[in-house]
């Protein structure tokens, strides 16, 4: 078992020769569910490698949160991680897999593609615009691809939602954090200019500073 992110809810009463735990069954059940999520890894494109597999591997180590038991079988999984583009031909398969999972089941959508269609939103003849057009999604992890840390954060968010009992109760409900339209008074042109400015700023390298950082790394690795 991995890192348990909070204690079992309840009160422990010390008694002679042992103790008694006062708690609610619901809380114990939710607590254990949250700490032993078994993911069904539904990877269809780049996000599968960049996020899902990287998170499961040694450096980021999903096992720390009790969610390392990746199941290719929907019957044995309770968390569906959608990592990648969903196309028209894949959508019914995704729906089938989700329907085959036993309740309670949770869904995390990682990456722009699974959230909204991402880079394939326009002029695509086949990309589904978000996995939530097909199945209900609990947690969205944005990015193209997201960092593995982002998926860990999404997992912790889901654990919190399970403990609080706020995961999606009704299939078909969509809580989309992505705005389909730009906010009032903002144009695509402005957004692009802003991004260009940020990219310019972060892409400028201060060579002198970089040299000192490099030197400090080099000396640190010698120690």
């Amino acid at each position: 078992m991995g890192l348990v992110t909070d204690n079992l809810p309840g009160a422990l009463l010390p008694l002679p020769g042992g103790g008694a735990l006062l708690t609610a069954i619901d809380q114990v059940v939710n607590w254990s569910r949250a700490n032993s999520l078994w993911p069904l890894t539904f990877g269809t494109s780049c996000c599968a490698i960049e996020v899902m597999m990287a998170t499961g591997a040694a450096r980021h180590d999903l096992a720390r949160f009790g969610a390392e038991v990746a199941r290719p079988s929907p019957r044995q999984a309770d968390l569906l991680i959608i990592a990648g583009t969903i196309v028209k031909k894949m959508a019914p398969r995704l729906r089938t897999l989700w329907e085959q999972m036993a309740e309670p089941r949770y869904v995390i959508a990682t990456g722009s593609c699974a959230i909204s269609g991402g880079p394939f939103l326009y002029h695509s003849y086949t990309t589904i615009r978000g996995a939530d057009e097909v199945i209900p999604v609990d947690v969205y992890v944005p990015g193209c691809p997201p960092r593995p840390e982002a998926l860990l954060y999404g997992l912790l968010t889901l654990q919190k939602m399970i403990r609080e009992g706020t995961t999606l109760a009704r299939p078909g409900e969509v809580r989309k954090p992505v705005l389909a339209a730009l906010p009032d008074g903002m144009t695509l042109h402005q957004v692009r200019a802003e991004i260009a400015e940020l990219v310019q700023e972060t892409a400028t390298v201060d060579r002198a500073a970089a040299a000192t950082v490099g030197a400090s790394y080099a000396s640190a690795s010698r120690v």
Partner: peptide, 17 residues
Amino acid sequence: FPLRKDYADDFMLERPS
């Protein structure tokens, strides 16, 4: 045949300008 340049269908979205 979707990779033909003149292909269009109802599903495709136009990019808002």
